[in-house]
């Protein structure tokens, strides 16, 4: 079922993204400076780090929500601007409580004032894909936390952007729901360029093609790991277990 949807949603070739000499000041001091990293096109990159290290700020900078310092350069490798090609998913589901679940999924065109033909049909297809077809006309406040985050995922998919930036999208739900959401997201965003910010080493190892560890003050990317095998990985995968220990060492735990 998912295959047909993903192939029906043509997002073009997902670009690689290079961040160079990024700098962000917070309270007069640099949160990070001369920070460089590369997000491979069509891959999942996880940015792992302790709370407050500046990983969310970095994600928001790539999303264009905060301006970086003068030296900062953020560019896609295909030379086209990133604006308009990025979808953003936050820790909170950010569903509008006065709209139905379906209207929340189809929010984008409404906010861009560009009514798109067939958008309701597309919204229903995506709700079905995330298992919420019977909740289409329900209000968000009648949904559980996991269902709400699935609706947010459907809204993200609806945007049909080749780049998806996710800021701890699964951290507000319970452990079992989180595992299900990770599987669903890796499946549905398989071929996009994804940056996922997380503080959970298990989550990074489960879904990432590449794990970047961000530590220090000012922060820098202190380690890069490539977990073996294909996503979503199992927790008892020996490669995952071994790498988990190394990640904890990288994080000074």
């Amino acid at each position: 079922m998912h295959d047909s949807i993903v192939s029906a949603v043509d997002v073009g070739v997902p670009p690689s993204i290079s961040v160079d000499r990024a700098r962000l000041d917070y309270g007069g001091r640099p949160l990070f400076k001369d920070l460089s990293l590369h997000l491979a096109g069509g891959h999942w990159t996880c940015l792992l780090g302790p709370s407050g290290v500046g990983k969310s700020s970095l994600l928001r900078m790539i999303a264009g929500l905060v301006r970086g310092g003068a030296t900062t350069s953020i560019a896609a490798d295909d030379g086209r601007p990133l604006a308009g090609r990025i979808a953003y998913m936050a820790q909170q589901d950010l569903l509008l409580p006065w709209l139905s679940v379906l209207d929340n999924v189809c929010l984008g065109p409404r906010l861009r004032r560009s009514r798109r033909h067939g958008s309701v049909t597309q919204g229903r297809v995506l709700l079905e894909a995330v298992g919420l077809s019977t909740q289409a006309s329900a209000r968000p406040n009648t949904l559980s936390g996991g269902m709400r985050q699935r609706a947010a995922l459907a809204r993200t998919l609806f945007e049909q952007r080749p780049v998806v930036l996710m800021d701890e999208p699964f951290s507000a739900v319970d452990a079992i729901t989180r595992l299900r959401l990770q599987s669903l997201a890796t499946d549905m965003l398989r071929d996009r360029t994804v940056l996922l910010v997380t503080h959970d080493p298990w989550e990074a190892l489960r879904v990432a093609d590449t794990v970047l560890v961000m530590t220090g003050n000012p922060a820098r990317v202190s380690a890069t790991h490539t977990p073996p095998g294909c996503r979503p990985r199992r927790h008892d995968d020996p490669g995952v277990v071994a790498l988990h220990a190394r990640l904890l060492a990288d994080l000074d735990v």
């Binding site: 953003y88 936050a90 906010l111 861009r112």
Partner: peptide, 20 residues
């Protein structure tokens, strides 16, 4: 958070006022 979401969606300022 809603305003961030709207910006990431390239929302029109008047639409943000009206819809959010």
């Amino acid at each position: 958070g809603w305003l961030d979401l709207a910006r990431a969606m390239n929302a029109h300022p008047l639409a943000v006022l009206w819809h959010i």
